[in-house]
Design a binder for these strands. Structure first.
Length: 525
RNA sequence: GGGGCCAUCGUCUAGUGGUUAGGACAUCAGGUUUUCAUCCUGGAAACAGGGGUUCAAUUCCCCUUGGCCCUACCA
């Protein structure tokens, strides 16, 4: 059975690259009806961040990447091969470190950090590879015993065999290394905690991991791990080294050059689906003949194979994420509106002048009202967190206002305040805004048009339909082009260069405020 | 310095020993729309370079170049 694992260290919020690594491991396990394990690698006590483990579990859960074995939110664990937190397994690592010592595959090293530093400095200066010089490899028995008796701190180093080693990687094929180029790795630190290399091998073995999926940066450590498997006489797992996620300048994706915390993308309003789709395609593609652009998690589970993962890194470019997010939200929003409309009025007529845009015509204006109310609530869900308090007071007005900027909110919910503020406060604007040369609106025309609007709206019942009808009739009556009347009206009502259409704005503002704004504009001209 | 990995439009990518090298995002132009957006149509845009192998190479091999990763008592 296939068994994969995600093994993060709890050093802070989950990195977006880490999420992708987890996703690939999860998908591969599910694709093969295997299991997916979460293991916490907290062997560096200095870097551990309080609450990070919980945070990681929550994020994985948020994305639906349920693990079959590992720690849980209730601080218990599930699975037969626990504990799944390395700091609780230290006895195991000590036992196997001792075994390595006994078999001559490892040795104690008493060198101080200062000496190691000096040695490295010297090597670098002489253009040599910085590597441990094995001074402590063959310490005479008496000296060794004396140092132990004196309680001199030591580490345990792996004795790397000076021989060639090759291994197969599912993504990259065969790679060769020579032992002579590999440093004698520290396996146990002087605080008696293991390093990644030892803990990782021991755990993967006892947790029966069949496929190790991890980032490319681990390739050069793989021979060390393989030598360890050799020393223990264990069967190594299959490896798949994943391509890196890159900064704009092609270096490894880092905090310094942008946001890498998964959490912050969730906070910014990116949906689970869009994040998942975005990251899964940075480094993988199902191959020829695949035309779907957006996958559900289930569909990904079916489609995913490690063989189709790419070799080269991918630049983490947010433009596409924005597109995924918007596309997904839009589709879902319109699906939902369709549902709601049919629920409210089974006889509703729906026309679709454009792709994924619908015009709903209800039998009864009363039904239309309740539909609009629900529609507004739907939009509100997308932007609630970004709404400024001063817009929250008038709920009817808010609902209608939101509907007029629906698409824009789906695209960037965080800008909702900018989109709707003009409904609540008329911006200061120059009188030039009311004119438009290309459309044939000079200030005389603007004045005439606005006065005509006043006439048209004076006795107009205040529904969107009636407002539209009244103004369009007026346009015919005074014989101007649409834009000649509608441009000055729209700009008078919004005070903005760009805004929703004049009819909708008038409807949202209400009769009194509409007339008021038109009159204000007239005094400017 | 040593070791390793990688290389198709700006970005994510499809693809093949013979293709007009395909798609998406971004971008540009035109159209629809009272403005912006949306929507529709169209355009520009890539096989890093040099050698082989071959009738034929973007595809296979080698070299060069470039980028990246590792080179910690971090993972």
């Amino acid at each position: 059975m296939v068994k994969t694992r995600f093994a993060p260290s709890p050093t802070g919020s989950l990195h977006i690259g880490g999420l992708r690594t987890a996703l690939y491991a999860y998908l591969y396990a599910r694709h093969n009806n295997g299991s997916f394990i979460l293991r916490i690698e907290d062997t560096d006590q200095n870097r551990e961040v309080e609450g990070a483990t919980k945070h990681i579990i929550q994020i994985l859960q948020h994305f639906g990447l349920q693990h079959d074995e590992g720690p849980t939110l209730t601080e218990s664990e599930k699975g037969p091969n626990g504990p799944y937190v390395q700091s609780k397994r230290t006895d195991l690592y000590r036992k196997y470190a001792q075994q390595l010592l006994d078999n001559g595959h490892a040795y104690r090293c008493f060198c101080t950090k200062e000496r190691l530093e000096e040695m490295r400095e010297h090597q670098t200066k002489n253009k040599l590879a910085p590597m441990y010089d094995r001074r402590c490899l063959d310490l005479p028995q008496s000296e060794l015993e004396q140092k132990l008796k004196d309680n001199i701190p030591f580490v345990i180093r792996q004795k790397i065999p000076y021989q060639e080693i090759k291994f197969h990687d599912i993504i990259r094929g065969t790679t060769r290394f020579h032992g002579k180029t590999i440093d004698d790795q520290i396996l146990m630190k002087s605080d008696n905690f293991p390093t990644y290399h030892l803990a990782n091998v021991v755990d993967d073995h006892f947790m029966e991991i069949t496929h190790v999926t991890r980032a490319e940066e681990w390739i050069s450590s793989t021979p060390k791990h393989l030598f360890l498997y050799q020393a223990f006489g264990w069967e190594p797992p299959e490896y798949a080294h994943l391509p890196l996620l890159l900064n704009e300048d092609r270096s490894k994706l880092s905090k310094r050059q942008g946001d890498v915390a998964v959490e912050s993308y969730i906070e910014k309003g990116y949906s689970v689906e869009s994040i998942l789709n975005f990251i899964v395609f940075m480094g993988w593609h199902p191959g020829a003949g695949e035309e779907r652009e957006i996958f559900t998690l289930k569909e990904l589970e079916e489609a995913f194979t490690l063989e189709k993962v790419h070799k080269s890194g991918a630049i983490f470019n947010l433009e596409k994420l924005d597109w995924f997010n918007w596309k997904w939200k839009k589709e879902n929003h319109h699906k939902k509106l369709l549902e709601i409309a049919k629920q409210i009025d089974p006889n509703v007529t729906i026309s679709s002048p454009r792709k994924e845009q619908h015009i709903f015509t209800f039998q009864d204006p009363q039904l239309e009202n309740s539909f609009n109310q629900m529609r507004g609530n739907e939009i509100l869900k997308h932007c609630e967190g970004f709404l400024s308090p001063k817009h929250k007071d008038n709920s009817d007005k808010l609902t209608n206002a939101l509907i007029t900027v629906e698409e824009k909110i789906l695209r960037s919910p965080n800008e909702v305040t900018d989109y709707i503020d003009f409904y609540f406060t008329l911006p200061q604007y120059p009188k030039e805004l009311l004119t438009h040369e290309k459309m044939g609106v000079d200030s005389n025309q603007a004045l005439d048009s606005l006065k005509a609007c006043l006439e048209a709206l004076e006795n107009c019942p205040w529904t969107l339909e009636e407002i539209t009808k009244a103004l369009m009739n007026k346009i015919q009556e005074i014989n101007v082009k649409n834009g000649q009347l509608l441009w000055p009206l729209r700009s008078a009502l919004s005070g903005l260069q760009f805004s929703p259409g004049a009819f909708e704005i008038a409807f949202v503002l209400g009769k009194e405020e509409t007339i008021n704004r038109i009159q204000q504009a007239i005094t400017k001209l």
